[in-house]
Structures are given as C-alpha cells and as structure tokens.
Design a protein around this nucleic acid. Structure first.
Lengths: 213, 213
DNA sequence: ACCTGAACACCGTTCAAGT
DNA sequence: ACCTGAACACCGTTCAAGT
C-alpha cells in the first residue's frame, strides 16, 4: 500500500505529504526530473532535508507520489458508449500528461503499485464488460490501448524517439542525406511530427479494431 | 552527430569507446540502470574515472551510446512482403530489448538523435512505400506501430504499469477487494500478464489495420 | 510526533599536471 | 593524445539529539 496516511494531518503552514508532493511537482515542472533532489525540495519548502522523511518514504516513494498526483488529475469520463468512454479517457490521460510534460515520464515509466491507478482502469473495463466483452478480451484490449498511449505520450513528451528533433532545422537535411532511399523519400514527413494527429490516428485504429471484436 | 570517431583507435588493452560501452552495458545488465556511475564503470575498467571522458562526452552521452549498441543488435529483416517485414522487425526489436531488459529503457525512453537508429526505420519504410503507401501514411503507420512497441516493451521490461506486479500473489486479492466492480470481475486476468500474447495481440491489430490501408 | 544537523558514503565534472 | 588525481559542488540516507 502506497496510499495516504490514516488521518489527514492538520496543515497550519507545517509540512505534510500533500504539500511536499505539490512542491515536488512544481519543481519538476520548472526544472525537470533530473533537477529533483531531496535537498533542493527541502530548501524550497524551507525545512531541513531530513524533515521530508517524516512524510515520505524516500526519494523513490516521493516520485511515486508525484505520479499518483498526476494520475488523479484524469477526470472520470462522462457516461456513454464504449467508444466515447475509451476516447474520453484516452484524451483525459493525454491532457493530464501534457499538463505536466516534464513529470509525465513518472507515470509512463514507473511501475505504479498504488490503487489510485485503478480508477481509470475501472472506467475502461466497465464499458468493455458492459458491451459484452469476456473479461480476458477486455483486459487484452485495455492493455493494447494503454501500450499505445504510453508509447505515443512518451514521444510527445520528448522522452522517446520521434525521428524529428523538435526545433532542429538541420534534421531534414540530415535525413535526406542519410543515403537510405526510403528515409530520404519520406524525409519531409519524418522531419515533422504532428503529435495530435498521430494520437488520433493510432487511437482510431485501435478503437476500430476493438469495436470489430 | 553522435556517431563513432573518425579512426577506430587501436585496442591493445587500452581504453576505447567500444570497450567502455560494452562494459557499461554489462554493468547495467548486472546491477541495473541506477547503479551506473562513471566512477564505478572506471573501477571495472581499471582506469581513473576521468579517463572515460577521453572517449565519451559525459554520462548522458555514455548512456546514449549504450542505447545505440542495443539498437544495433536488431537484425535486418529477411526480404519479404509488407506484413512479414514489419512483423520480423517488431520481433527483432523486442528480442533485442528482452536480451537486455534492464538497459532497454535507455532505448525506449531517450530521444536518440543518432543516425544508427535509422536502419530499422529504413527497413520498415521501404516495404511500406513499395506497397504503394504515400509517404505521409507510411510515416503515420510507422509511428503508430512504434508507439505500441515502445509501450508494450516498457511494460514487459517492468518499467511501466501492468496492473500485475510480477511475482506478487497478494495482488489478485488486492484487486478483488478494490471495491471497483469491473476491476473485481476481471481481477484474475488483470493479476496476470502474458507479455508474449499481449505483444502478438496488439501487433496483429495494428498490422491488420495497416493492411486495410 | 515531528523536526534538526552532523556525518557517511557516495556522485559528475573541471582543471592543472603529467606522459 | 591520452591518462591521472585533487578538488568542487553536489547527492540520498542513517543516526543521535532535540522539542
């Protein structure tokens, strides 16, 4: 169990798990994941580094906590059909990650043991089962879509290969000069990546496939 | 350019970029990514930490180099139809990552600027173009498949959420007791993940979709 | 119950010096 | 051209002490 403590501790300017996690997220947003350190975080909170350990189990648990904060920001999908629900959740997930691009890898790359990660799972699984999917197929479908979401978002958040570095004008030239015929032919498209369009394209394919059972 | 130096330096027991990268990969395989440090790597090589900097641009460049070593292990696909080629490459990619599961996140997670990453791209794009795909669609398809591959492999390599911790027998009980109806109903399937089957399932869906234009 | 600060065993990297 | 070692500015975390 990696969830909240029993009682929410009073928050009179004092330290608390929530305050620490929020400040950690702010730190990641501003300076990036690599810049996070217990000491720097403590400095920002005006406390001794070791005080953090009264509310958080260590750096790794801290980052898990931040990931959970991000996940909790995914809104519950409005009730609707299978396709609408899955699409809403996929977009909610994407929006939550894009709202904190530098922190997103925490969600996308960590094995979250927490139960808070289950709310979106329930929201996807419910409609799939209601639509008559046997549970095994439903889980299959969920995992295929999730894999795609994680992969696209990693790319979008600049943690995974695009074959287009975001602002590099020499990239096209490099690709064209690669000597690889297909790469050269497709260079103008490889050099640019419309993340929104890629997301919709892949999502549509997967949802189509699921609809056809 | 993050490629090799001009001349391959003689390798008489001395240091070299290749020797450093190979040792780094071995270190990751044995102790995991977090355990990698320039100092420890130097210790294993029997040299002063600072000697590494004569062959590698710093820790980040070192890790990029290891990622490229992994990528280079993907075999060129045997000539064949569109579907065979894409499938062979996907499996080659997967096998390369599973051969070094602890190092795989380096490939899956980093923005590789290197040109060595282009060989597999060429191998996929070639058949797509030959099959009559307009370059824009070909790139779309490539990116959708790649996103799925990255997402599944992240999960497989235990860097991304499965909803089943690998060896945790209490997981099923946790899921069943979650109070979420759909999660409870699907708990037996959520608690277990046959990576091989998930991989084939998702890949088939995507390749089917691409075949249908 | 919470906070503190010294201390331990580490980091990556710069720089001046050696061969 | 390559290697070295001291030094700098950091880390995460343990532990004993305070309130």
């Amino acid at each position: 169990m990696t969830t909240r403590r029993g009682r929410p501790p009073k928050d009179l300017g004092g330290l608390s798990r929530d305050r620490i996690l929020r400040e950690a997220l702010a730190l990641v947003d501003e300076e990036g994941l690599d810049a996070v350190s217990m000491r720097k975080l403590a400095r920002r909170l005006g406390v001794d580094p070791m005080s953090l350990y009264n509310h958080v189990d260590g750096k790794d648990a801290l980052l898990d906590g931040v990931a959970e904060v991000l996940l909790a920001a995914i809104p519950a999908p409005p009730p609707g059909g299978l396709r609408e629900t899955m699409s809403a959740l996929a977009h909610g997930f994407r929006d939550a990650m894009l709202g904190h691009p530098r922190a997103a890898p925490l969600v996308l790359t960590r094995q979250l043991a927490s139960m808070t990660a289950l709310a979106p799972v329930e929201a996807v699984l419910g409609p799939l089962l209601a639509a008559g999917f046997p549970p095994e197929r439903a889980v299959h479908g969920l995992r295929a879509v999730l894999a795609f979401l994680i992969g696209t978002l990693m790319r979008e958040v600049e943690a995974a290969p695009t074959f287009s570095s975001t602002g590099d004008p020499g990239r096209l030239a490099d690709l064209s000069a690669s000597g690889l015929p297909a790469v050269t032919a497709a260079a103008p498209y490889l050099a640019v990546c419309d993340h929104e369009a890629e997301f919709e394209f892949g999502l549509r394919i997967l949802l189509d496939a699921l609809s056809e059972l």
